[in-house]
Design a protein around this nucleic acid. Structure first.
Lengths: 216, 216
DNA sequence: TACCTAATGTACGTACTAGTGAGTTACGTG
DNA sequence: CACGTAACTCACTAGTACGTACATTAGGTA
C-alpha cells in the first residue's frame, strides 16, 4: 500500500476497471442469485459500460465464476494468516472457532455466494481450475491441533480434521446464511449484538465439549 | 387413504391440478432458484398448461409463496409427530437430533427452498400470513427436555430452546445444503452412506456434550 | 509527431419469458 | 336434458436481458 504521490489517475486503466466490475458484480450476484442478477444493472452501477464486462469477462457465467474465485481466494488468504500454534490445544481450537465465526460475520456476500453455488450444485466451481488448486490450509491446522490435543489428553475423539472443520463451519455459516428465515420464524435476530457475542462464545464451548468426548 | 373402488378419474379436477402444479413447481424452484425457475418449464412438465398456473396462482411469485408455505407446513406436521417425552433428557435430545438429521436428509427440496428464501432475505415468507401462524412446536419440546435435564442434573447450560434448535439445525442443514461446495473443495461427500451414519451419531454426541457443559 | 492498439462508448438484434384475451368443454344441478 | 359455471386450451403480446457490431479515443511507442 505505498501511497502514490499524486496518483496517475489514468482515464483508461484495465486493472481498475476489472476490479470495479468484480466488486459490483459480487454485490449483484450475492443479492439476487445467479439468474436474478442483471448484467445491465451491474453496468449501471459503475462508471463503465456493459460492453466492458463482455470485453473482459466474455459472458455472464464467466463473470460469475471470476467473482466466486476471487471470494474464495480471499478466504484462503485469511486462513493462511491464522497463527495458533503457540497455544494449548483447547485454546487453539477455541481461537480458530472464534476467528471462523468472525470471518463469516464479516463476509456476508461470500456466504451468499456459497449458498447460491450450492443451489446450482456447485456446477460453476467444478468448472474452475483456480479453485481446484487453492488448497485448504485450515485442514492442516486443525489436524495439528487435534494431534496435539490427543497427545495431551485434552481431546478424546475419533473425529478428523474435516469433521471438525464442518462442525465449526456449519454453526458459523448457518447463523449468517439462515438469519432471515430463522428471524422470521423464531423471532430472534442471530446477528443482533447481544446474540452475536453469546453465539461466538457458544461455538467455542460446543466444539471443545465435543472434542473432550463427553457426549458419547 | 380409503381405496376408492374404481376411482372417479375425472378429467377436470381442480384439486388434483393444483396439487400437481405445486409439486412440479417445488422441483423447478428448488433446482433453479426463484429467478432461474421458468413458468413455461413448470407447465411443460405437467399435463396441464401455463394458463392454469395463472388461473390458480395468479403470478410466479404467488406460486412460489404457495410452494414455500406447503413445504413449511409439512415440516411442522412432522415436528408435531415427535414423541420423546417418555425418554430421559439425554436420550430425548439425542433422539430429537437424530430425527432432525433424518428429516433434513429426506427433504432436499425443502432445504434448497430455505436457502433460496434466505438469499432473498426472507422477503416472501414475511409476506405470508400462513407462515406467521404456523407456530413452532419443536421449541416447546426442546424447552421441556432442557428443563428436565437441568432438574436431573444432566444438563449444565445457559442455552435456551432456540439456541439448542439452532445448534442442531445448523449441523443438519449445513450437511445437506452445502454438500456440493464442500464436496468440491474438500473431496468428501457428506451424504455418502458411511459419512451419513457417522455424522448422524456425531450431531447427537455434539449437542449432548455441549449441554453437559464441559466446553466452558 | 505519427501511428497502433488496447480500452471504451453507442446502439441495436435476437431470443426468451411472464403474463393475458378470448374462446371452448366438462360436469354438477335443477 | 338444458344450462350455467368452473376448468381448461390456444394463440398471442409487451417487455426484458444477454450479447454484439461498429465507431471512437486515450496513451504508449518508434
Amino acid at each position: 500500500m505505498t501511497p502514490q504521490p499524486a496518483a496517475p489517475e489514468r482515464q483508461r486503466d484495465a486493472e481498475r476497471t476489472k476490479a470495479e466490475i468484480l466488486e459490483v458484480a459480487q454485490q449483484e450476484f450475492a443479492r439476487h442469485g445467479y439468474a436474478g442478477a442483471r448484467v445491465d444493472e451491474i453496468a449501471a452501477r459503475m462508471r463503465t459500460t456493459k460492453r466492458m464486462i463482455y470485453y473482459y469477462f466474455g459472458s455472464k457465467e464467466r463473470l460469475y465464476i471470476a467473482v466466486v474465485e476471487k471470494a474464495y481466494a480471499e478466504v484462503r488468504e485469511m486462513e493462511r494468516s491464522i497463527e495458533v500454534e503457540h497455544l494449548a490445544p483447547v485454546e487453539a481450537i477455541r481461537t480458530l472457532a472464534a476467528l471462523t465465526f468472525d470471518h463469516h460475520d464479516a463476509h456476508r456476500d461470500f456466504i451468499k455466494l456459497v449458498a447460491i453455488e450450492n443451489i446450482h450444485e456447485a456446477e460453476h466451481i467444478r468448472k474452475s481450475q483456480a479453485l481446484a488448486n487453492l488448497g485448504t490450509p485450515v485442514l492442516d491446522l486443525i489436524a495439528l491441533i487435534l494431534d496435539a490435543g490427543r497427545a495431551s489428553g485434552d481431546f478424546v475423539t475419533e473425529a478428523d480434521a474435516i469433521d471438525v472443520h464442518m462442525l465449526i463451519s456449519s454453526f458459523c455459516f448457518f447463523r449468517v446464511a439462515n438469519q432471515h428465515t430463522f428471524g422470521a420464524l423464531f423471532g430472534r435476530d442471530m446477528t443482533a449484538p447481544e446474540h452475536r457475542a453469546r453465539l461466538r462464545a457458544m461455538v467455542g464451548d460446543m466444539v471443545v465439549a465435543y472434542l473432550r468426548g463427553t457426549g458419547a
